[in-house]
Amino acid sequence: MINVQFAALPERWATYEAPLRAAFAEAGLEVDLRLDHAPADVDYVVYAPNSNLQDFTPYTRCKAVLSLWAGVEKIVGNQTLTMPLCRMVDPGLTAGMVEWVTGHVLRYHLDIDRTIHTQDRWAPVVPPLAEERPVTVLGLGALGQACAQMLATLGFPVTGWSRSEKSIDGITCRHGDAGLRDALAMAQIVVLLLPDTPATENTLNRDTLALLPKGARIINPGRGPLIDDDALLAALDRGQIGHATLDVFRVEPLPMVHRYWTHPNVTVTPHIAAETRPLTAARVIAENIRRGEADDVFLHQVDRRLGY
């Protein structure tokens, strides 16, 4: 019997219990799934970083901590977590992110906001074709690649940037500092899907925002700290940036006094771009437990040196 502890906020148990049990059965795993195993008896922890479990020292036989979150910045530095840590790469979450990003890129591309606001008068707005609208995706992990490839399928010329060199069919890939400058220089729309690490904080700042063509649009469903908020607001005020759609913030919920709420060229969405989907996430968890029991390599294991 494999002992699995579920460690997330209490209300998540009702959401995940049935999908996890079904996924374990489908994978042929004999699992005792509980909220309250004795720590020394636990083989795997299904985990959310905002749970009450923060000290992993008593989990002496635990083979892996399997996060339900895509981001691990809130837990990767925990010195008591010495066993393998796997982040969530969920097909359902990825599909949701692709749909959200594609929708907002098309909203900008077709100038839907302006068309709606002028529907009381005859003022045709004819957009260019997608092939005339360069898009840059910052971050080429699983989510970034999926979004970049969908946008390329729709005909947008897509440039992707990552810290390390990558090659993706149909995407112009750039990396490093010089690559970032190139990726921004022609981008009419920028999508941020980088992880939150010390190396990615304020990727968009006063200097990098100035590299963008005047009036460029920004979409951030990645992480709040990727953007220097003061620099973005200043760029919006002077028209360097035409509009920003922001789904993530340094402080959430976004404080009501924040200027993002009232700025005419900012759209705020409440961290809804992508959510872990219990049905598909449960299958990822079950596959990683199967791999652990077979002494196989875990999926999506975190490289703690990189922070993701």
Rank of each mutant, 00 (worst) to 15 (best):
E201S: 13
V251H: 15
L193Q: 04
D229P: 03
R223N: 13
H243S: 07
L212C: 05
R206S: 02
P195T: 09
A235C: 09
D229E: 15
R250M: 12
T200I: 10
A244S: 09
T197N: 07
G222Q: 05
D247L: 03
V251F: 08
P221M: 08
N220T: 09
V248A: 08
I227G: 01
A187N: 08
D228I: 01
L232Y: 01
P195L: 10
D230M: 04
A216S: 12
A187M: 02
E201I: 04
F249R: 12
A199F: 06
A216H: 04
D229G: 13
L236I: 09
A231W: 02
D230P: 01
L246P: 08
L211H: 01
A234Q: 05
A244L: 02
A210Y: 05
Q188K: 15
N202C: 10
V248L: 11
L194I: 09
L233S: 03
L212N: 05
L211G: 00
A199H: 14
D207L: 08
V248C: 10
G215N: 13
T203C: 04
I218H: 02
P198Y: 14
A231P: 00
R223E: 03
P221H: 10
V251D: 08
G224F: 09
G239D: 12
L193W: 06
R223K: 11
Q240C: 04
D196C: 01
T200E: 13
T197L: 09
I241F: 00
N220V: 04
H243Q: 15
T245D: 13
D228Q: 13
L246Y: 11
I189Y: 04
T208G: 01
D247M: 13
K214F: 08
R206V: 00
L236Y: 11
D247T: 06
D229F: 05
R238W: 00
D237H: 11
N202T: 10
T245M: 15
G224T: 11
Q188T: 09
I189Q: 06
D237S: 14
D207M: 00
D237Y: 14
T200F: 13
A216Q: 14
I189S: 07
I189G: 01
I241H: 03
D230A: 11
L211E: 08
I218M: 06
L192K: 14
N220Y: 14
E252N: 15
P213R: 12
L212M: 13
L233C: 07
A231E: 04
L204Q: 01
D247H: 07
Q240Y: 11
R206N: 00
A234P: 09
G222R: 11
D247C: 08
L232H: 00
R238L: 02
P195V: 15
P195M: 12
T197C: 05
D207Q: 12
R223D: 11
I227C: 00
L236H: 07
A185V: 04
L193R: 04
T200V: 14
R217Q: 15
E201G: 02
